[in-house]
């Protein structure tokens, strides 16, 4: 992550909706141009080799197209949703393990997501991204290492008290909103 981390202001939610509703290839190409090199970078930071990272990234982007109707903008930002797809694919491919996921929550039948709620959540996630970018170098590095998988479980247990305590208040707003969305 660079110090002058910029949060992209493009409306990626609308891109996903265009893919879902119109199979819009231009929207997909724009999402691809933005996210694919980041997914690949993320996977390589996590210890994946070049060829597998390329393969895995294509997989993740194809999954995004196929599952676009399952994306709920009141529960996750587009980046968060893509992160969870990439994480699961990585566990699949690299560690050849199943990834047990929590039981689906009983949602109302095809409820159209509340626009304001969705916008609010996307903004909170952007704010969270800025908050993480503004963390002191050492603390940010610790969080990155935890997510890239080069911090052992016990190291996390020992060390995360510090950065988590610091970002906790910043996460809280996003957390409240997420909690609200899960009710």
């Amino acid at each position: 992550m660079t110090a002058q981390h910029k949060t992209d202001t493009r409306d990626w939610v609308a891109h996903i909706e265009r893919i879902r509703d119109q199979e819009d290839r231009r929207a997909f190409a724009e999402l691809f141009a933005h996210f694919a090199p980041r997914i690949k970078g993320f996977l390589i930071r996590s210890g994946t080799d070049m060829a597998l990272a390329e393969e895995c990234t294509q997989d993740v982007m194809a999954t995004l197209w196929q599952k676009s109707h399952l994306f709920d903008p009141t529960r996750a930002s587009v980046a968060t949703w893509i992160f969870t797809i990439a994480r699961n694919r990585k566990i699949d491919l690299l560690r050849k393990q199943r990834r047990p996921e929590p039981e689906d929550l009983p949602w109302g039948p095809e409820a159209e997501p509340d626009q304001e709620e969705a916008l609010g959540l996307q903004q909170e996630c952007a704010r969270l991204g800025r908050a993480i970018a503004e963390l002191p170098e050492k603390q940010r590095e610790l969080i990155e290492r935890a997510y890239f998988g080069d911090l052992s479980h016990s190291e996390i247990a020992e060390e995360t008290g510090l950065p988590l305590g610091t970002i906790k208040s910043r996460i809280r707003l996003a957390l409240d909103r997420l909690r609200h969305a899960m009710k």
Partner: peptide, 20 residues
């Protein structure tokens, strides 16, 4: 967990890119 996934999303967004 939703908050921690959001941290993951933010890290992905800010990650150094590698050309496809």
């Amino acid at each position: 967990l939703g908050a921690f996934d959001s941290v993951g999303g933010a890290l992905l967004e800010g990650c150094d890119t590698v050309a496809m």
